[in-house]
Amino acid sequence: MKWWYILPVFLLCLVAIGLWQRLQRAEQPAPESVAPVVVNPVNEPIQAIPLQIALNETKVKLGEKLFHDPRLSHDNSVACASCHNLQTGGTDHRQRPIGINGAEGFVNAPTVFNSGFNFRQFWDGRAETLEDQINGPIQAPHELGSNWQEVTAKLTAVPDYVAEFAALYPDGIQPHTIRDAIATFERSLYTSNARFDQFLRGDGEVLTEAEKAGYHLFKTYGCIRCHQGVNIGGNMFQTFGIMGNYFADRGTETQADMGRFNVTGDAQDRHVFKVPSLRNVALTLPYFHDGSAARLEDAVTIMGTYQLGRRLAPNEVDLIVQFLRTLTGTYKGKPL
């Protein structure tokens, strides 16, 4: 009749399980969290870019490699970097980018620098995140013209990639891990320590009087109403042509000129675009979604006319442009 010994033993087991569960709970690792970007607020509408942003360096390296890899395009001819050339301000300096088979895009390629600070991606803001955004160019026939199946297959054939992905992601090479690596790299493309940021941090001597006058005009003339925040833009939508009909004056309206309307179908979103960042704006020519303004002065003038309802005098434009040139920052410690 030894059987009844089992029951006290079993009750002991229950107690043991309880204790074990308690221990297990304590052992649970804190979920990996992306450290929020801390911006030290200054009493200005423009905020300085943090000097350091903590990111997984291995992911950044892998993302950089992918960013420059033309195998992400259907015919292995175009990489992300083809149109977002880091040597030329993260843009291609073309009015419209050229994809595979020489196909031309519909809008100007925006800079990839500081894109991590943008609240949406694309001129029409159709992508909520950088990860989302990557789906666009990869699959657009006039850009990389590929698809995720093709891209993952090509990358899986490269032993280096297999090893690098395996070291970072349990899932290995997958569309979402490719996107994560590239987006992490893009988040590392912040250009801190621009002369203007030094000014914001309290160094009053770093700007010339003309540049300070330019900044004053920038604020008093209303540019600051849209181009504000850490990215001097990139955090709101605005109609192009508030105080005048830009598109009628320019002529030949395209589908792309409809802007956010193409995303929402809302009549109020006609000609609405994401306000672009003015960081490194001196290097990201040509300007606007249509790349119609080749010079910064042209862009400032057009903005004054159609957005602010102001006719800016050439010397005012010049001052504003001088201010805008102070927004060129450094990447990896070197000026862009």
């Binding site: 008093t220 003339y221 209303g222 109403r225 849209c226 955090n235 709101m236 939508f237 605005q238 109609t239 508030i242 109020q268 609405v272 957005q307 602010l308 309802g309 102001r310």
Partner: peptide
């Protein structure tokens, strides 16, 4: 919120100018 941001920018600009 998006409309507010856009419209507020426009209004503030005109109010200033």
């Amino acid at each position: 919120l998006e409309r507010f941001k856009s419209d507020n920018a426009i209004l503030k600009n005109s109010l200033q100018y």
